[in-house]
């Protein structure tokens, strides 16, 4: 009795979560334009996407922004986490709680405040403003990921390294970074995903000259769901899955 319930419940939950995604993926290969009935297998929506210059440009823009933003956020975030963990300084407690506060800030608030800052500084809305905006909301996630990993280690190790003759830079490259690497990688992947599908901040801080995929898709959907969108979403899904698998492999390497 109990196992039936358990499996039944699990099955129900998984169905709830995955049915919409499954329908989307199946429809991306559905020759029929309206996804109500199966009209045969096809790649034509992918071809249409591939041949749609506007969409492809937006996709490439999205990738560029996400890679740049995730990378910069990872470097700054990792260094910040190391500093927070390693050194004692005035205002440290305040700084670390402010990291959490910024994670909880509603995105719309962050979007508006970024826009105000860019206007005040006279930064033209486009690639640069978009990247800065994305770095801003990715940063706390990297800091938290790296910091919590560092906290899990016996930091007598750093003293031991010093005691054995390691300079500050050797300690960073030989001890801290290798230990934090899985969290650094996870921070990058998380930032990349957050950046790739961000709509709210992007809608505020990008300009008309620089279109990115989520916003483009959003404007397309307003006119009606085209099967091309299914194809794009499927590609995004596959990209995320691959990234998750990579991050899991990275984490396993550590053991």
């Amino acid at each position: 009795m109990a196992p039936i319930f358990r499996w039944g419940f699990m099955g129900l939950v998984l169905t709830m979560i995955y049915i919409p995604i499954l329908v989307l993926v199946v429809n991306s290969f559905n020759a029929s334009k309206y996804g109500i009935k199966w009209g045969g297998f096809t790649f034509k929506w992918y071809e249409k996407f591939w041949n749609n210059d506007g969409l492809m440009t937006a996709a490439l823009n999205s990738l560029t922004v996400s890679i740049v933003a995730a990378s910069v956020a990872t470097v700054i975030g990792t260094l910040a986490a190391v500093a927070l963990h390693r050194y004692q300084f005035k205002g440290k407690a305040l700084l670390s709680s402010m990291v959490f506060v910024s994670m909880l800030t509603p995105e719309i608030v962050m979007a508006i405040s970024l826009l105000i800052v860019f206007m005040a500084l006279g930064i033209k809305l486009g690639f640069v403003s978009l990247v800065i905006g994305h770095i801003t909301f990715c940063l706390p996630f990297v800091i938290v990921a790296v910091y919590s990993r560092l906290k899990g280690f016996d930091m007598k190790m750093l003293e031991a390294a010093r005691d054995l003759g390691a300079s500050e830079s050797s300690i960073f490259w030989k001890i801290i970074l290798p230990l934090a690497l899985p969290a650094v990688a996870a921070g990058w992947l998380l930032s990349f995903t957050l950046s790739l599908d961000d709509v709210i901040v992007s809608a505020f801080v990008t300009g008309p000259g620089y279109e990115i995929l989520p916003l483009k898709v959003y404007s397309m959907v307003r006119v009606g769901v085209s099967p091309e969108v299914n194809a794009i979403s499927t590609i995004l899904l596959v990209v995320s899955l691959v990234l998750v698998v990579i991050s899991q492999l990275l984490l396993r390497e550590d053991k």
């Binding site: 016996d154 007598k156 190790m157 003293e159 031991a160 390294a161 010093r162 005691d163 054995l164 003759g165 390691a166 300079s167 001890i175």
Partner: peptide, 15 residues
Amino acid sequence: EKRPINTVFQSYALF
């Protein structure tokens, strides 16, 4: 790091 002195820590502190 420059002293010719080494320590065995209580928690071992192995890498």
